[in-house]
């Protein structure tokens, strides 16, 4: 190898790319020692090279694979993963645990909504029963009327609570003409108002009023309406009810229930991240 003014550039390029042997590198350095202009040119070419910079691929966890990793796990740890110590022991499959948890949750939800639907149907049945009660109460003695209608108010309470605010406001608005009509002892007006009332319980109670025209009965109806109205406002304005979750006949504290679900979620997430590791 002999460097001269015609071929030196090629050797300089090979020099900066580390593509020369030790003897060739020595020959280039010897040439540059006696040719300062070419030595400056080498510096320029070295300036063209870029120094590596560190750029990290941040999502390495998405690239990892763990197919055979369990084969090399610590024996003590591996043993703890086995269900049985017998020969046919199998590794606990985390996916199976997830599926089991998921199916249990699905069954629980199914039961919850099933019971909820049944309880709603029971309420509807109660409403129908209540609607039929007033007719029978008209046959009772005068002294018992007050007590009977009070019983009706207890039975209808739950269904009235479920009615929305709009219907209750309509209910309260309708109270005035009904009460005034009763006060005037004008039974002809009462059924007309009763038809306009949307609430079924209200309708059923009012429907019973024409048959019992006694002042005592009218007074007791007014009391019933006042009680019902009072109950409605109490239920709606109580903020604590928002936190209560009804499961069948049980009332569960919503905050505690959410806390349990959050912890369960955290445990599942931790298992997943451990699996990924």
């Amino acid at each position: 190898m002999e460097l001269n003014q015609n071929n030196y550039e090629n050797y300089l390029l090979l020099y900066i790319d580390n593509e020369l042997t030790a003897s060739e590198r020595a020959a280039v350095e010897l040439f540059l020692a006696s040719n300062p202009k070419q030595a400056d040119e080498l510096k320029v070419l070295q300036g063209v090279k870029i120094n590596p910079e560190h750029i990290e691929y941040t999502d390495k966890t998405s690239l990892y694979r763990f197919e055979e990793m369990n084969a090399t796990l610590d024996p003590a740890f591996k043993k703890s993963l086995y269900k049985n110590s017998s020969n046919n022991a199998k590794l606990i499959d985390i996916k199976k645990i997830y599926w089991a948890t998921g199916s249990i949750a699905a069954i629980a939800l199914g039961i919850f909504f099933g019971i909820k639907t049944l309880s709603i149907q029971t309420d509807i049945l109660q409403e129908q029963i209540v609607a039929s009660i007033p007719q029978s109460t008209t046959k009772l003695p005068e002294s018992n009327t007050n007590q009977t209608i009070n019983t009706i108010s207890i039975e209808t309470k739950s269904s009235i609570v479920k009615s929305n605010i709009q219907s209750t406001s309509e209910l309260s608005n309708k109270n005035l003409p009904i009460n005034t009509s009763i006060a005037r002892n004008d039974p002809a007006l009462i059924p007309v108002d009763a038809v306009n009332v949307e609430n079924k319980e209200k309708e059923s109670i009012i429907a019973s009023t024409p048959s019992s025209n006694t002042p005592l009965a009218n007074n007791s109806i007014i009391e019933v309406e006042q009680k019902n109205e009072k109950e409605v406002f109490e239920e709606i304005n109580t903020e604590d009810n928002d936190r209560i979750i009804h499961i069948s006949n049980f009332e569960v504290d919503g905050d505690k229930f959410r806390g349990i679900t959050r912890r369960l979620g955290a445990i599942l997430k931790r298992n997943k991240s451990e699996k990924n590791k």
Partner: peptide, 17 residues
Amino acid sequence: DIAYNNAVDQYADGVYR
């Protein structure tokens, strides 16, 4: 998979860069 994961650690940054 251990060798593969080592390759991820060693070369993912370089390939990405």
